[in-house]
Each structure stands twice: as C-alpha cells, then as structure tokens.
C-alpha cells in the first residue's frame, strides 16, 4: 500500500524519519497524558503537546520530504500548522470557560470564584430595576 515514489538522499530520509517519529511520539504522549491526568483542568494541558510540536514535527517532515523529492520548495504544510496553532487556543479557551461556568454553577471542585464586583454589579442592576 505504501510506496515512497522517489528515492531520497540518505540525509533527507533521516531528517524526515526523525521529524515523523518526534511528532507522532509527542502526539501519543499527549494522548496518554490526556487519559491519565486526574482532573479536567490538568487534562486540558496534555493535548496541546499534539497540537504544538506534534503537528509541527509532522508538518516539517512533510515539507522536507516534498521539497526534496520534487526539488522545489513546498511550503503549503505551513498553512495547516498556522491554522492549528491559531484555532486550538480558541477551542480550549471556550471549553475551559464552559467548564469553569459549569463547575461554578454546580460548585464542585476547587474552582476559583468569579470576582466579587460581578456580583455587586448584578445587585446594582437589580436594585436599579426595582427603583424604576
């Protein structure tokens, strides 16, 4: 099923192999940490291994491979890398805020409370509403 189309020079093959194994090992370690860490907020850290240098390693491997085998610079893998780097913080931030919101609403776990002034504001708004 798998047949590398072109014979790469040895150094390029070594570089591609090293980046591939580095990236996929980081992705696997991230997944293992995601399974084993005890609380949600700790688990949140593990997949970023896969999304930072896991993706980075495999993109670099692909870039080196296609650049050498077609003997012109192939850079479009950078787009996936950039896209993942920009989007992962968004999903993780949204999920973390959702988790904080849910944990606060159910008051479980050692979650830091929201700042006091929010409650004061709510009371002030309610007070105004009653006055009007």
């Amino acid at each position: 099923m798998i047949q590398p189309v072109s014979d790469l020079p040895l150094w390029a093959a070594m570089v591609v192999a090293a980046f591939l194994i580095f990236g996929s090992a980081l992705a696997l370690i991230g997944a293992i940490g995601f399974l084993r860490l005890p609380t949600f907020y700790e688990r949140l850290h593990a997949p970023t291994l896969g999304t930072s240098w896991g993706v980075g390693g495999i993109m670099l491997a692909s870039m080196v491979y296609f650049s050498v085998s077609s003997s012109r610079p192939v850079l479009h893998e950078i787009l996936i890398g950039l896209f993942v780097t920009v989007t992962t913080p968004i999903t993780f931030m949204l999920l973390a805020r959702a988790a904080l919101h849910r944990d606060r609403a159910e008051s479980n776990g050692n979650v830091p409370e929201k700042h006091q002034h929010d409650l004061e504001d709510v009371e002030a708004i309610q007070g105004n509403a009653e006055e009007n």
Partner: peptide
C-alpha cells in the same frame, strides 16, 4: 492567549 495556550503546561482560562 495563543502563546500561553499553545505552550503545554499553561492554559488561559478567563480574562477579566
């Protein structure tokens, strides 16, 4: 936020 979240080991939760 992107820098801190992409760095494994720190996660950005909520900005006030």
């Amino acid at each position: 936020a992107i820098i801190l979240t992409s760095t494994p080991g720190s996660a950005w939760l909520e900005y006030d």
